[in-house]
Amino acid sequence: MFLLLEQILNGLQLGVFLFLIAAGLTLIFGIMGVINLAHGSLFMIGAYAAAVSTQWSGSFLIGILGAVVVAGLVGMAMELVIMRRLYNRDHLDQVLATFGLILFANELLTIIFGRTPLFLDVPPFLNGSAEILPGIDYPVYRLTIIAVGCAVAALLYFVITRTRAGMLIRAGSTNRDMVAVLGVDIGLMFTLLFGLGAVFAGLAGAMAGPLVSVEVGMGEQQLILAFVVVVIGGIGSVRGALVGAILVGVVDTLGRAFLTDFLKLFMDTASADGIGAGLSSMSIYILMAAILIARPNGLFPVAAQRH
């Protein structure tokens, strides 16, 4: 039972990472109609920036700040130099150009930092564990990640539904041209929005730093999972991204933790190990396929898509 709770929390924490990445991806797609493979690179850049600025300053908070600033700036630069030329192209061109960006970013970071992974320590003030229920300890750092993720989700919800900027975002996702005609500087809005998505990805990268090794290619794995999240949630829907991210995080974590033991109830240990390992690594994709059969446009389809 304790183990189950712990694994659910681990799943939530994975879900938070995926949400931070998928939220940017889905916003950018929903409004600009661009699929950006290099979004995972922003996650990686955030992690590297956090590692470097933490080492330089000795403070994890400055590390986070560094990650957010660097990822945001890189994101906006990316929009200004390349993405902007791709809005009116078909998805294939967008995929290829951003694939080129990934190759470039990965190779550049390899040249700068080498192939040895960097490691970030959990900051001292978040080290240790807290008793969440009598007798159950859970690392404070992971709890913090879950809290930050919830805060970002709440903030995003507030911005999108209650502010003027959010109104423009919603209007832009319904009819981009109309918003431009009404006198909104749509170019600036796109750049800023791209920066916002990059900030989320960078934040996720910085927070992931102490849990995984910071290495080239760390973003792509997350990117593909974020795609699964976006497909499950419905493209363009932030709410869908949240639900999808938590579903994927929990299913993946629980699958890896319990599926093999569960199978052992029905079959001998050797085949349970084999099938369990295979099935649990496929679980989220099977989930995606199942949802796709029931709801081809995801759980929260955005009605007015014309891209």
């Binding site: 290829l96 150009a97 080129g100 960006l101 990934i102 190759l103 470039f104 970013a105 190779e107 040249i111």
Partner: peptide, 11 residues
Amino acid sequence: HWRIVFGPLLI
């Protein structure tokens, strides 16, 4: 690191 040339070439 030939990909650093190849990536931009692709773009």
